[in-house]
Nucleic acid binder design. Structure first.
Length: 279
DNA sequence: TTCCAGGTGCATA
DNA sequence: TATGCACATGGA
């Protein structure tokens, strides 16, 4: 994909491998706002404004280098889609979500966000995360940064309950005490399996949340987050002749095996199309 | 009213 | 290793 970077912008040429709606609404991220004529994207303490143009997109931001990495602009999605399209069940999902790119999100923000996401709905997840930003995030003038671990350490369990986190309040209170400021960054050097186990050891992090953090923040593609939608997808395409429903762990093992190093991408196309009822 | 939302933690066998 | 249940909250 062709793009150019300036001091305060990135210009994307072409729309085949970059569709901001697909990217933001495919379920990998909660920190954005649909403004009608553009999207505002927030990550950690940074902001970008993404507007569609005749030729492609223009991304206005003070941190173009950061968002070049965030949007994973160096990866050739045409190639990934060509390879995955050989799987019959992926043909339609890829056509439907052809503009998806898997983001490289902030580690801490992704961890906290997906802990909040567990057994929750998108609307409420966004609400809780916005309250976190407004109460604990740095005022960046017009928007709030995602809270730092340090700012979250200052609050007790009650605070997290008051902003509507429900029983996840305990998890939030605990998790910021289980890691220090460098932990998540240091874990980057670990292999996927070891890293996954480290994540699962944290409060509020089980297999599904761990896989989401691995995929959407650590850029590990050899994972396959299995949730209610993927469960349905599995039953629809693979589980027809099975006597009893497989456990999520078994489904995960099968799908990682099936798609190998591209499992993460495959998952996102499938998830997006299932949730949009386009399969 | 009941069910569900991108599940996790814990007890039990 | 696998199964069952409780867990806050709000919308459909």
């Amino acid at each position: 994909m062709k793009y150019s970077i300036g001091k305060d912008y990135i210009e994307i040429f072409g729309k085949e491998d970059f569709n901001i709606r697909d990217i933001l609404e495919c379920g990998q991220v909660f920190s954005y706002k649909d403004m009608g004529d553009c999207y505002l994207v927030f990550s950690a303490d940074k902001k970008a404004k993404v507007t569609e143009t005749n030729l492609g997109y223009i991304i206005k931001t003070n941190s173009p280098k950061y968002f070049e990495n965030y949007f994973d602009l160096k990866t050739d999605y045409g190639k990934i889609k060509a390879t995955l399209s050989k799987f019959p069940i992926l043909k339609k999902p890829i056509e439907f979500g052809k503009g998806i790119r898997i983001l490289k999100q902030d580690l801490f923000e992704t961890l906290i966000s997906f802990i909040v996401s567990a057994n929750n709905n998108i609307k409420r997840i966004t609400l809780i995360l916005n309250r976190l930003r407004e109460n604990l995030g740095k005022d960046m003038g017009g928007y709030f940064a995602f809270p730092t671990r340090e700012s979250m350490l200052k609050k007790d369990v009650n605070f997290y309950k008051e902003i509507g986190a429900g029983y996840r309040a305990e998890y939030l209170y605990k998790v910021v005490r289980q890691i220090d400021d460098n932990t998540l960054e240091e874990w980057k050097s670990l292999d996927t399996k070891t890293l996954r186990n480290k994540l699962i050891s944290l409060a509020g992090v089980g297999p599904k949340v761990a896989d989401c953090v691995l995929l959407f923040a650590y850029s590990r593609q050899d994972v396959f987050p299995v949730d209610t939608w993927i469960e349905q997808m599995y039953m629809k395409f693979y589980g027809k002749n099975e006597e009893k429903v497989l456990s999520r762990e078994k489904i995960r093992e099968f799908l990682v095996q099936e798609f190998g190093d591209l499992a993460g991408y495959a998952q996102q196309y499938l998830f997006y199309s299932m949730r949009s009822k386009e399969v």
